[in-house]
Amino acid sequence: MTNKKTTEIPVLWIQGAGCNGCSVSILNSESPTIKNILVDELIPGKHINLRFHPTIMGGQGEQVVSTIFETVKKHKNGYVLVVEGSVQSGANGSFCTMGAMSGKHYPFIEVLNEAGKNAMAVIALGSCATYGGLPSWSPNPTEAKGVREYFNEKGIHTPVVNVPGCPPHPDWFTGTIAHILIAGLPDSRHLDDAGRPLAFFGKLIHENCPKRPYFDAGQFASQPGEEGCLYELGCKGPITYADCPTRMWNSGLNWCIGAGAPCAGCVEPDFPHLTTPVYKKVTMERLESFKIKTK
């Protein structure tokens, strides 16, 4: 369907200190598929014009670095910036460079400053970009942090929507994009204190866990492969807000707890700092500090 009035929404997707897992997860999107996202009008009349993405774009080198700066200039306050990977502010940003143009090598943070300041909004995608994630694990050798924290330090005021997860579920990303296209930027009514859309991160995994009856009955698995609640094996479901139990992963086929593995709490701002050791039981005190959200 060709729609002559198609509005192109420019999107730049940049990668800091991450593993590409967020990108790979979004490739797994079921409805819409990644083809729908890249090629079709995601919402009638609106097309995501992904102008920069290191893993899939055709070009390389100078020609693609210049695409970023052209977009920033031409579409000031009119493009969405997706950030994958954490922001390493240590050593003046020299832990991650992301390209060279006219003999200059650009540290990731320099591109983030420029593209972040002038964006309509930033989607911090994945637990690294939202809260620092794995690279920020103690002793955090590269001073890795999330985009919001970095923007606060730098005085950059562009709105940031946090879509955490290691990796994030593709629906959490496409759902957030759809929200922007249909209803505008999510604001404090739609986000929790950690900047996450309540639509996906509004309930504790424990609230909807199919193994919850085991927990209530005190029937716990004592080793992998055994029937029972995984609490004793370190499950972080009671301290993790996400809709994994109902949404499930990879086209709704499975999920961590469904596969007998304790939830690792990968969407939490505390991941991995307070969610590890993975296979160690959550203390009662911590358990009781996580409440059902009422917003």
């Binding site: 897992g21 790979v24 997860s25 797994n28 290691c166 990796p167 992998p224 492969g225 992963w249 990879n250 499975n254 999920w255 961590c256 469904g258 596969a259 007998g260 593995a261 304790p262 690792a264 990968c266 296979y279």
Partner: peptide, 17 residues
């Protein structure tokens, strides 16, 4: 593997599934 990327079932000693 439970989910992918980053499966969760492979553990020392075997698997959880």
């Amino acid at each position: 593997g439970g989910k992918m990327p980053h499966q969760c079932t492979m553990v020392s000693g075997g698997v959880t599934i």
